[in-house]
């Protein structure tokens, strides 16, 4: 644990987190929705609706998580990692 009290974050740092939360979160949600819609079993309507409802939950989760790490760069990792996972899953799914 840090022994020195952390300085309050600056405005640019907060803006960065907000961008990651709203912009990055949207990207994760959109990719999740798109990928899950074709990966989930069942009729198209069920898959599509499940996909976008889950995508919304993911959006909020990612937007929250982005504020957790101490470094701003790590916040973007929290965005890029799920994106990569969904892209990979989608690519594998289209090949298999």
């Amino acid at each position: 644990m840090a022994l020195v009290k952390q300085a309050a974050p600056g405005r640019k740092a907060v803006l960065n987190r907000i961008a990651a939360a709203l912009g990055g979160g949207y990207a994760v949600a959109a990719l999740a929705a798109s990928t899950l819609a074709v990966m989930l079993p069942g009729p198209a309507i069920e898959a599509a609706v499940t996909a976008h409802l889950l995508a919304y939950l993911l959006f909020v989760l990612v937007a929250l998580a982005v504020f957790v790490p101490r470094r701003g760069a790590t916040a973007w990792a929290i965005v890029l990692l799920p994106c990569a996972v969904f892209l990979l899953a989608g690519w594998l799914g289209s090949r298999g």
């Binding site: 929705a33 798109s34 198209a44 996909a51 409802l53």
Partner: peptide, 27 residues
């Protein structure tokens, strides 16, 4: 949820190949 077709349409777009009307009918 009420604004999904505008804000998060990607699941519908993908599953219905862009045919929003087909989605509405199925719904």
């Amino acid at each position: 949820v009420t604004l999904t077709s505008m804000f998060m349409p990607w699941a519908i777009q993908r599953a219905y190949h862009g045919d929003m009307a087909a989605y509405a009918r199925d719904l």
